[in-house]
């Protein structure tokens, strides 16, 4: 797994996706930090964290689009699948590489918090809870993007499809609001990615949120492994 992870991190930087991803993410987070915290003169960063939800819906597809599609297109997939490693190692090696880059990006709010701490009191617990929620949300979304990347050999198609999928997950409870059946509404609400994230940003952190995002991440990575297993047996 280590070899795949290191190669993937290296590829992020040689293909300049890492720079684009980090630059765009930091630009947006900086802008929201400025607009929601600095101009308002508050150390509360929940406004910024709420806005980042949409930013990562746009950016995570860029992070995951080439993970497997590029391997397939360049025919390097064959080398990977005939190497003495398990499918789990391959999928998680790539997944963790994307997650690492994402984590580097979302560490930035700690820098903002440090800046603010010289002007006023910062609730570090809340900042950390928000960071954790953003991390878990990303962990789930990256798993979705990884699966979609394994389904196509076209990077752009993978990016667009991931974007549509993440948008659909985002709008689960909006759709729920339109359907007048109580149990469907409740089901969609309980599956909502946004509601859970939003409640953390307003200060409600609970374990079920952690479990939910981690389960989603696990399920989608498992599905990616299944995709490769199926392909071999087809």
């Amino acid at each position: 797994m280590g070899a795949i992870y290191r190669r993937e991190i290296g590829a992020y930087f040689t293909s300049s996706i890492a720079y684009i991803f980090l630059a765009v993410f930091w630009t947006f987070s900086g802008w929201f930090f400025y607009a929601a915290s600095l101009t308002a003169g508050t150390t509360d960063m929940s406004g910024m964290f709420q806005s980042l939800f949409l930013v990562i819906i746009f950016l995570i597809p860029i992070l995951t689009m080439r993970l497997f599609s590029e391997e397939k297109k360049q025919k390097t997939e064959q080398g990977l699948l005939t190497a003495p490693v398990s499918l789990g190692e391959i999928v998680f090696g790539k997944y963790f590489a994307a997650l690492t880059l994402y984590t580097i990006a979302i560490l930035m709010p700690f820098v903002y918090a440090m800046i603010m701490s010289s002007f006023g009191h910062v609730e570090w617990g809340i900042v950390f809870a928000n960071f954790l929620a953003l991390f878990l949300l990303g962990a789930a979304f990256i798993a979705v993007g990884t699966l979609i990347s394994a389904l196509t050999e076209n990077q752009i198609a993978a990016a667009v499809m991931s974007f549509v999928a993440l948008m659909a997950l985002y709008m689960l409870d909006l759709v729920g609001g339109l359907i007048n059946i109580v149990w469907v509404q409740n089901l969609l609400k309980s599956l909502s990615f946004y509601t859970k994230y939003y409640s953390v940003t307003v200060g409600l952190f609970n374990v079920s949120t952690v479990v939910f995002y981690l389960s989603v991440a696990f399920i989608f990575n498992y599905l990616t492994i299944r995709v490769f297993e199926r392909r071999r047996w087809s």
Partner: peptide, 16 residues
């Protein structure tokens, strides 16, 4: 697989 050295029809090379 650990016993095999395999050169496929298209070598699995990372061009970058």
């Amino acid at each position: 697989k650990s016993y095999i050295g395999y050169l496929p029809e298209l070598p699995p090379l990372y061009l970058d």
